Computed example of a mutant assay.
Amino acid sequence: MIEAIKFWNEPNNKSHWDLELDPEWKQFSHMVRLASTACAAENPHLTRVLGGISPIDPAFIARLDGAGVLQGVHAVAVHGFPLDWNHWAIHEWPQKLAEIQAVTTLPVWVTEVGVSTFGAEEVQAWGLKRSAELLIGRAPRIHWYSLYDLPKAWPATTRHREAEGSSYYRHFHMGLLREDGTPKLAAHEFSAFTPELGICQWFHFEDHRLDDAVRWLKRLGVTRLRTGLSWADSFRPNADAWFDRQMKALEDFDLTLTFCFTPEHRGIQPHHTSAPQVPEEYAEFCARMVRRYVGGSATPVEAAPASEALLA
């Protein structure tokens, strides 16, 4: 079941949105307003979520609220990696959520939280346990990033590259499983926190790991999965066949689908982080994916843990 869709990924991070082209996020805001309207027309009951922000910045949420973006979504989302990239301590998670809750009445999801094994697997195992303690019960959705290490032959999705120092290489060690599919220490502990803890796993075009990923997710007791459908990939030959295969393989999970990545030939600049030349085209892609994989029926996600009412 597709329970939610997300518009973009980390829009306040230059690795995912070109801030030089759109320094005040006016083009981004317009694009998301168009997309949320188009998806609501296809299915008004489907939960719509603003792409997870990184860093966690209440001023950014307030900016988008002022631009009318939050009127078209049911929730906002944050990403946090205090043991690897952020400039705050892991025990500050409740405070970071409170900072966003102070500027919006919308539920705050945590759609990426994780710890790399760059230094030691024991750090990730401890970070998993502590993150779960701090987040479960405080956010309606929590997705651990990620199931697999990033293959070393693939580039990390960042524009910083080696200028980040060791931070760049941490991208390759975020999985519960190594590149070859063997489990790390944290993988043996993860099922203690499911189903409350979901997983975020991106699948590349025709990703060879898809079927093994499904087996591992079920073995770990995961019921909630966040993944993405790439607007850029939609222009590849046989793109819909790959999307169909991916959605079929993942049909047993409650999915949050992220729509992102500008096709190079449709960006103002030829890069996946660029604002599009025609923002309506992104909205059309989102609406087409909703039409193809959700249709007209959907059950709204709970606005908060436990007993609070469903989203309207």
Rank of each mutant, 00 (worst) to 15 (best):
I5D: 02
K6L: 10
N9M: 08
E10M: 12
S15R: 03
D18A: 09
Q27I: 12
F28V: 01
M31P: 00
P44E: 07
L46V: 05
R48D: 03
I56T: 13
P58W: 07
A59M: 09
R63N: 12
R63L: 14
H74M: 10
V78A: 15
W85I: 05
E92T: 11
E92I: 02
Q101A: 15
Q101M: 06
L106H: 11
L106W: 00
V110D: 01
E112C: 05
V113S: 08
S116Y: 00
G119D: 15
V123D: 15
V123Q: 14
W126A: 15
E133A: 13
L135E: 01
A139Q: 03
W144V: 00
T157Y: 13
A163M: 11
Y169P: 01
H171R: 09
F172K: 01
D180H: 04
A186C: 07
H188N: 14
T194I: 06
G221H: 07
L225H: 08
S230T: 06
W231I: 03
S234D: 12
F243P: 01
Q246K: 14
E251S: 15
T262S: 13
E264Y: 08
S274C: 10
P276C: 11
Y282L: 11
Y282K: 08
A283Q: 07
C286M: 05
A287I: 03
R288A: 13
Y293T: 02
P300D: 02
A309T: 06
